[in-house]
Design a protein around this nucleic acid. Sequence first.
DNA 1: AGTCTGATGACAGTGACTGACATCGATGAT
DNA 2: ATCATCGATGTCAGTCACTGTCATCAGACT
Lengths: 188, 188
Amino acid sequence: MGRWEPNARGRLAQAALELYGELGYEQTTVAEIAKRAGLTERTFFRHYADKREVLFDGSSALQELFVTAVAEAPRSVAPIGAIAAGLEAVSTVFEGRREHARQRQAVIVANAELQERELIKLASMSTALADALRRRGVTGPAASLTAEAGVAVFKVGFELWLTAPEEREMSQLMRESLDELKAVTTRG
Amino acid sequence: MGRWEPNARGRLAQAALELYGELGYEQTTVAEIAKRAGLTERTFFRHYADKREVLFDGSSALQELFVTAVAEAPRSVAPIGAIAAGLEAVSTVFEGRREHARQRQAVIVANAELQERELIKLASMSTALADALRRRGVTGPAASLTAEAGVAVFKVGFELWLTAPEEREMSQLMRESLDELKAVTTRG
DNA sequence: AGTCTGATGACAGTGACTGACATCGATGAT
DNA sequence: ATCATCGATGTCAGTCACTGTCATCAGACT
């Protein structure tokens, strides 16, 4: 066995989520998080760039999954259809994690700084999606607009999923949200 | 004349924009901003909640303008049409301010913290727009999705306007972006 | 045994932000 | 004219997020 307990990074993330939930984000100090994880404050900052980032460990993987699904959709599929495929792919990774997602989201909605961080993660996703669409041949503002639309559907669908009854599946809620967006931009 | 030079708030905003442009956001200290404005650091924080907020003084007025235009669109207009009216209203206030907008945007895109702040302002706008749409009778996720679509069009249209030749008007670019979004959500 | 490496600890420092209290010119009441 | 009050600002001490630097130490490799 090693000199240190394994998975320091995971312990920090777990301790942070707990403390942010128990005391609130602002009232929690990084020193407390580190102490609960059996580490020092300095080590926290070696694993996470700042106090907010510890809640967003999986966001890069989620973005890659979304982008890959868009990129790999059949050539015959229209841009908005490729986004739909991405939403489908993303939905699978949240299966069985609704309770964890609810706990995390409760922490985030309680604090503006954390919401800011979440928004920039979604903006990064939008940029990456737009790039993927351009690689599919989408030109001009259409790529950005389709990507923004996709992220908007993800946001709305995700929130619906958090508040929906347990039996409702995320993928279905994403499809319904996308259909709703299509309807809403068509009328008028 | 008064005990103090007038418009302390405006002087702080001006000094901050200059210094963020000259030195970069991170390299600028609040003490420097205050000094250039002829004030102290403590006074800066009496006018602005934090170092970022000084760049977003007008965002609340912009949001009100957008929301009011949506609320006051004729009852017969569809939700997406009301958003179009809001985009039209918003476009007018930027007339003649393109150079200032470019300078400010250059500062923002150079720093992630500032982008986060901008994104939460846009998210606040989206929430307020969705509320306005609900007051118009729009129900369920349609309100949120229409509002998100409107903000997406604003973002894309605004960026087009910043990089477009001087003679192109913002209102026209907003209309083109909205049309593009409609096209993109229809195909597929 | 000797050496190197990677994760961690220890410690000092900067700067954003806050709370508490002092200052002082302007304003209006007396 | 005098005085009490008020609002914007200054002063100062303090907390905490975050960083740079150097020391430590178990395991891997030779």
